[in-house]
Design a protein around this nucleic acid. Structure first.
Length: 206
DNA sequence: TGAATGATTTACT
DNA sequence: GTAAATCATTCAA
């Protein structure tokens, strides 16, 4: 762990604070594009620029796990304060990483769907079992596998601890409909997916 | 108590 | 392009 601390000191990352996460969820989803997600663990520090996000705005949004205000053991973290981490399992085999937005008891969250690798790329490749860089973190399940994020991070805060966002230069963004939420009917038409314009690191090409 | 189902990835044709 | 892997959560009964 001493090595991890040394790496973090060398990186000198500026952790984004409470104010950043207090923006409304749709705006926050856009502002997360270009920010750097940093994860420190016993196996080192890894970091990646966020290039793709989706906003989920329960309880009205039928695509959200908190649709209808559904509050269960699984969704509890989404009701926490802005900056809380919400992890959930996809298809019984992958993890997804989400940033909780909105005040306490407002179940909004942002799904991080793709990253541009920045730091600790060797570690990420090893965790992914080897793959082309383009496929390293180009999807929500791949992001978690590469960054070492799993259920152990559920409910943690980005305001303290080993997972946080760091600022980055502004980038040009674009917005599209969200992916794979056909079950949500009309809500699937909402343009609540944000990407860095022209990025080669997305889960889908433009 | 049981059946249906994903905010996906990968391999294969 | 299609299909399999794989399981906690959810809801109905």
């Amino acid at each position: 762990m001493a090595a991890v601390t040394a790496s973090l000191a060398a990186l000198r990352p500026a952790r984004l604070g409470e104010a950043f996460y207090e923006a409304p969820v749709i705006r926050l989803a856009r502002e997360c594009i270009g920010k750097v997600l940093v994860v420190a663990s016993a196996s080192g520090v890894v970091a990646g620029r966020i290039v793709e996000t989706e906003a989920y705005r329960g309880p009205n949004d039928l695509a959200a796990h908190t649709a209808g205000g559904r509050r269960t053991q699984r969704t509890e973290a989404m009701f926490g304060p802005a900056g809380t981490i919400y992890m959930f399992r996809l298809y019984g085999m992958h993890w997804a990483f989400n940033i909780v937005a909105g005040p306490i008891d407002t179940p909004h969250a942002i799904l991080v769907r793709a990253l541009e690798p920045v730091l600790g790329i060797e570690t990420m490749v090893k965790r992914r079992g080897g793959t082309r860089l383009r496929n390293l973190a180009s999807g929500p399940g791949k992001v978690c596998a590469a960054m070492g994020l799993d259920g152990g991070h559920y409910g943690q805060s980005l305001l303290s601890g080993n997972v946080f966002l760091s600022d980055g230069p502004p980038v040009a963004t674009a917005r599209t409909e969200r992916i794979n939420i056909d079950y949500a009917g009309a809500w699937a038409d909402k343009p609540w997916r944000f990407v860095e314009r022209g990025s080669p690191w997305l889960s889908r090409r433009d």
